[in-house]
Amino acid sequence: MLDPEELYEVDSDVPNLEGAVLLHHFDGFLDAGAAGRTLTDHLLEEHEHRVIARFDVDRLIDYRSRRPTMTFLTDHWEEYEAPELVVRLQHDTAGIPFLLLTGPEPDREWERFTAAVGALVERWGVRLTVGMHGIPMDVPHTRPLGVTAHGTRPELVQGHQPFLSRMQIPGSIAALLEFRLGESGHDAMGFAAHVPNYLVQATYPGAALTLLETVGEATGLSLSGDALREAGRRADLEIGKQVAESDEVAEVVRALERRYDTFLDASKRESLLAESEGELPTADEIGGEFERFLAEQERTDPRD
């Protein structure tokens, strides 16, 4: 493998980051309700930031599969929105530094890219790397959203209910990054907010807020969430209006509420995914759902 450090450039004036947290989200894979993207946009809006490392997207991105946007004005090309895969330095409300890695998911050289991120983790003394996104789930928007947690050590996800014992789903750079960091002895974890199935194609701020609160608890970072709370409140009001206008949709939501409440009341239940263990979806079924969701995302991708 070629030298991973040739994939990126780092600013010369990066401060001491020993013990910092690295958050990451990549566009292009599963992100129901745009949960991860909405959270990263929120962090960039609420917390000052500057780019301290930039990856070579020409080596990593297939432009023909995800064409960047260009603006045409009358008789000439006015603007080109070049894709960026960067690490930004930010500070939480208490002034604690943290890092945010965002951009399109690499199409190629996954092993080299994960090795490059690992080199930055070691270079800066990052103590914990955390990924975040949304997944579709059979839950109502009128109840608290759950989160699936996973990590390189069991201690990292204590207090979080396990998802399923074993399943196979399409891979992602975020998953591979967590896996490779764990192999190298670094702490890494990820959170997937549970997004109601009927909202997966919409931008759902409530899912992003769930991620923000969960990430804050796991990392100790103090992250501003007021704007997301207000956006979530407005979104829930609008969703409530739309549900009320359709008897069929309202019945679906009521059924999900009954199911959710039944599981919540049954202390011996181990999953909100089905009424009994015998009714749990198989790994193949869940993998198929992920694949179908990704196929729908590709067909509706506005960048094409």
Rank of each mutant, 00 (worst) to 15 (best):
F29M: 02
T40M: 13
F26W: 11
A175D: 11
L237Q: 09
F163C: 08
E18T: 15
T152F: 04
E277Y: 01
I239V: 10
F113H: 07
L30W: 04
M167Y: 12
L177G: 02
F179M: 13
L212K: 05
P97N: 13
Q297G: 00
E84D: 01
D107W: 00
H150K: 09
H24S: 10
L237K: 07
E122F: 04
D11V: 11
E270R: 14
T300C: 01
T219R: 10
A244S: 12
G185C: 05
T210L: 05
A208H: 08
H76D: 02
R59C: 05
A94N: 15
H160K: 02
R166F: 11
G103W: 02
G151L: 04
V121A: 10
R303F: 08
D226K: 10
P205S: 08
A116M: 13
L7C: 01
H42W: 08
V249L: 14
V215A: 05
A20E: 00
G190H: 02
V215F: 00
M189V: 11
D75W: 09
V86F: 03
T214M: 02
Y204A: 07
R269W: 07
T102P: 00
A119F: 03
D92K: 07
G146C: 10
E84S: 00
L156S: 00
A119K: 07
G33A: 02
A250T: 07
T300K: 14
S224V: 01
G185L: 03
T38Y: 12
L272C: 00
Q158R: 15
D304Y: 13
G36S: 10
A192Q: 06
R258F: 14
P170L: 11
R37T: 14
R112K: 04
L273P: 03
G220N: 10
F98E: 15
L60K: 04
S246D: 12
F263W: 06
R37L: 11
S246Q: 04
L280H: 10
N197G: 09
